[in-house]
Nucleic acid binder design. Sequence first.
DNA 1: TGGTCTATGTATCTTTTGATACATACTTTT
DNA 2: AAAAGTATGTATCAAAAGATACATAGACCA
Lengths: 207, 207
Amino acid sequence: MKEDWVNELNLFTEPQLRSEILKHGKVIQAKPGDVLIKEGQHLNFLPIVIHGKIRVYQQKDDREILLYYVGPQETCMMSLSAAYMDYNSAAFGMATEDSEILILPAYLIADWQLKYPSWNQYIIRTYKSRYDELLNSFGSVAFKPIALRLKDYLLSSAHTNNSKKVFVSHQTLANELGTTRVVISRILKQFEKEKILKLGRGYMELV
Amino acid sequence: MKEDWVNELNLFTEPQLRSEILKHGKVIQAKPGDVLIKEGQHLNFLPIVIHGKIRVYQQKDDREILLYYVGPQETCMMSLSAAYMDYNSAAFGMATEDSEILILPAYLIADWQLKYPSWNQYIIRTYKSRYDELLNSFGSVAFKPIALRLKDYLLSSAHTNNSKKVFVSHQTLANELGTTRVVISRILKQFEKEKILKLGRGYMELV
DNA sequence: TGGTCTATGTATCTTTTGATACATACTTTT
DNA sequence: AAAAGTATGTATCAAAAGATACATAGACCA
């Protein structure tokens, strides 16, 4: 049934808002690796993830660095900014899982902001949590050596998946942290010597 | 006359909002060097700068790094976040000029958000512009060598003041960019050799 | 089974950044 | 003018991070 996904996004309480979303929104599918948003791209829509996950990152030359992931019910800051001003995206957005994404036309957002309190709340919360997240990352990049950021990343990853095993390649870690593969391999090997973890192919196990 | 400062903040159009601000707000004075907000501090107020400037920065050990400046009519993200959740500040706020600051109780903010469109706009714009700013800084810290960030800083500083002369000490530059004085001195001397600028005591002149 | 792709290990060298120490010189205070 | 404080110049050494190159090994495929 068509309303399924509106119900899953049980964020928006006003019936009228829900019907507006139904009316104006489209749902698209994305596969892992699909780049939905490119840096510099002009955005006239707001994506809200229904299922799946989008990785938002910056890129320079052959380096990249993670900004955040957009999970179910969440949306992307870049697009939000674009909706208010006439703005271009400052980052890339790529699906990392099979995803279903609700696409809303940007011009509606400012409107809804005033009309629907639950939408208003949603926008504010998005800004707030993304800002805090970015602030955290900023502090880390500015003050922490890569080895420490790597350790933090692995611990948080293990915690999220509730498993000591983290399945990720060195190259991917490099991309998340904004450095190169060799640097990651070197540090991981050091960690192994310090008995902090054990290395395998395609994964590592924390101890 | 008491309403003077409300009129100067010609951001808020609703008469009722203006009178609420007058009723609940207090104006405080700050001198250069006054630390208004400390990292970790619990915030239950929202500061809006009327005159002057507040420097918002992070600190770790003896290092610090600039997040942004809060100028007239602007407010501080940390406090905004604190107003919605029960949050602590993630940064320091210090006056860098003689400043007049309007202090609003945090509990009013969520209320006003729904009642007054101009307040709503103000909050959203604040989040948006601060977020973009921080994103920019993040990209710089992640990808650019210090020498380049220093050059950017000086150029932007010269542009803002509309003068080729930038009056700032090496130590201050180090604090803005998150590094140490020696590093700055070294790079500046290099710039001088490359005829990019001339150094003086307490200032430098771009060419 | 051989070939290809991906992931990892590692050595070497360079660059960038940081830490420490000390000297010099200008400014402000007493 | 002497003293104290602030700003700058610079040498030396160490650590962190990056660049390049190449080797090995598992995974996957034809």
